[in-house]
Design a protein around this nucleic acid. Structure first.
Lengths: 249, 249
DNA sequence: TTTATCTATTGGTCTTACCAATAATAGATT
DNA sequence: AATCTATTATTGGTAAGACCAATAGATAAA
């Protein structure tokens, strides 16, 4: 253990009104903001870090646990605690929005409007920016969509994958993260209703139109195609829910 | 303490691969999803709940801490632990996105594009839906904007408030929540640069145009006005940062 | 009835001990 | 020398017990 690397962890003297474990959170958060701790870094072992910060180990754990919960840190028994890595798509935990949805009961219009805002934008940006690799992946997922027209649940998975690839092709990580968050509540709802889907062929066709607009670099066409698709998807889902309610009588 | 109310908390027999505190999280989360625990509910005291779930109190605290970190529960020393309340604007914790921004270094374009997607949509929806109370609040904030043209930091506060009111007037809680999340990183950046702002009068004027479009129910005008404002804001901010860099030489 | 004080409740912090998963090290085999 | 296996050390996870600090509720006094 190199003490030089640990010099940056200074004792906490809690003189503010908040509790000590919240100070631990603030301290680590500020160090991340200031770049003193970077993506992928391993924190000192809990016992050591607790000593360095002059708090008890359970108090330190409480702070670490908070940061783990929001996805900034990862703890691994036997290995250590790490700042999440830079690799791969950025990810915001969808649980927060999901629980908010449960507590609040977001309406279908709210979800549709949120999708419209986000997904029209990413479609337009994807038409500007998609790489040939990304276009190839989109084409593959499109094939998957057409290949699962008779299997609604499989269709849904390909559908979600297609939308994620469009977001990735937009090159905007904030929009991608927000879209993925909204996708978690959407998946919750749709996985319950999709087995009653009736006309997935039309939906598949719309994905093809989106793909072609992106491939051909037609920004407004991509935006409009995504809009039409989302309108159609909302109508289809409303029908799926209606069938569900009639099916109960 | 009524034992009837506590019947729903059943012991955890951990047979899955995840650790026990994560099971606590899952259990409470599922109960919220299923409506067995509702907004505003008080959970049993930690000592009692730990016994009911057949885990130690520190383990229960770890689970609760996670849910507190994502904003679903609130713990208050001497009072108890509560499910967050239904009242007031929905709120997603901005810290996750903020730390992601620090770890990843979101570009100004990414932020601008995200704002464009979200704020054009809420402006259009606000033009459809704003109540007269909301319009009155917007007018007040507009007055605040015009009244602080010579005080950039105060201007920024009114500017942010105006945008939040537009979001509230959209009547879409998902978009409002997402926008507020993005606003936290934006505020971080802008509070550092705004003191170097030069021509806030033009910005104030653009807020007026947005307000009028919303008041007059002109959806496309509201969208376009917001777009122009954001374009102008991005150019202004780029200039603020440029002045900052030149100011260092 | 209202206000002040006291007590009980409940979350926050700490110490100590032990368990469980992972990583590192040592020894045996090829 | 390289590879595999077993053992040990490290590090996060869980538990028990004690005590502190903040809040809420009960009681007493004005």
């Amino acid at each position: 253990m190199t003490t030089a690397k640990n010099k940056k962890f200074k004792p906490i003297n809690n003189e503010s009104s908040s509790n000590i474990s919240q100070e631990v959170v603030s301290r680590l958060r500020d160090m991340i903001h200031r770049g003193e701790i970077k993506a992928g870094d391993k924190l000192p072992p809990e016992r050591d870090l607790a000593k360095l910060l002059n708090v008890s180990r359970p108090t330190l754990r409480a702070g670490i646990r908070s940061l783990v919960a929001i996805g900034v840190l990862q703890s691994k028994q036997g290995a250590g605690t790490f700042v999440v890595n830079n690799e791969g798509p950025p990810s915001l935990d969808g649980n927060q929005l999901r629980l908010l949805a449960s507590l609040r009961g977001f309406t279908n219009s709210e979800m549709f409007e949120a999708r419209l805002a986000l997904e029209m934008s990413v479609a337009g940006l994807a038409a500007e920016r998609a790489t040939s690799d990304q276009l190839a992946s989109l084409a593959e997922e499109l094939a998957g969509i057409f290949g699962s027209i008779d299997e609604p649940e499989q269709f849904l998975v390909h559908d979600m994958n297609f939308h994620q690839l469009v977001a990735a092709a937009s090159g905007n990580r904030i929009l991608t993260s927000l879209m993925n968050m909204v996708a978690t509540i959407l998946f919750d709802v749709r996985s319950k209703t999709v087995k009653r889907a009736r006309d997935l062929k039309e939906s598949a066709e719309m994905h093809r139109i989106i793909y072609r607009a992106i491939r051909d670099r037609k920004v407004e066409d991509a935006r409009n195609a995504m809009r039409e698709h989302l309108l159609n998807a909302q109508a289809a889902q409303a029908k799926e829910m209606e069938i569900g309610e009639n099916g109960k009588k």
